[in-house]
């Protein structure tokens, strides 16, 4: 993450989307957006790369499936074989619910931590973009700053598009 960011705060999603669109057209693409709810299509405007989270989710789910299956197989067929209702020691239908649950659990938990990792977050860190009311009713558009000249142009654009507040935030 770069050190200097310029943030424009808007009071409606429409204004923010229009500003992001304008910024894209004048080749000053916004870097990120913080909004109270998911906005359809914003990822295309921001030209965000697809995240690696689906892969994390898949690997997590596959690990869960394998863990559940090998645990049950090992317990029921190898370590402590028990006759349950005359079924075979390796009665696969009975293993399906546990395999399903552990797949979901591992996939969910690994996606959660994968998300935190991808954002560089952990429980003892506060995001520099916290406090903009974006978890309430405001919409923030974040721009990377690499030159003063660029900062000028971005602030002008944000002002034109009706930003309530323009703030420089050092991350």
């Amino acid at each position: 993450m770069p050190n200097k960011n310029l943030v424009g705060v808007f009071d409606s999603d429409e204004k923010m989307i229009r500003a992001a669109q304008k910024a894209k057209e004048s080749s000053l693409p916004a870097f990120d957006a913080y909004t109270p709810f998911p906005i359809h299509g914003i990822d295309e405007i921001l030209a965000l790369k697809p995240s690696f989270l689906p892969k994390v989710c898949f690997v997590g789910g596959a690990t869960g499936l394998l863990t559940a299956f090998s645990l049950q197989y090992w317990v029921h067929a190898v370590y402590w074989p028990m006759n349950i209702g005359g079924k075979s020691f390796t009665a696969y239908p009975a293993m399906v619910p546990i395999c399903f649950e552990l797949t979901v659990l591992f996939a969910g938990v690994s996606t959660f931590f994968g998300f935190l990792f991808s954002r560089g977050m952990h429980p003892f860190k506060t995001s520099p973009f916290w406090g903009l009311q974006t978890e309430n009713d405001k919409f923030a558009l974040v721009f990377e700053l690499d030159s003063e000249e660029k900062a000028e142009r971005i602030s002008r654009l944000l002002n034109q598009e009706g930003a309530l507040e323009i703030r420089e935030i050092n991350a």
Partner: peptide, 12 residues
């Protein structure tokens, strides 16, 4: 499908 199948298979 599986909920119906597994319970009936299990109870036998």
């Amino acid at each position: 499908w599986f909920s119906q199948y597994m319970l009936i298979w299990y109870e036998n």
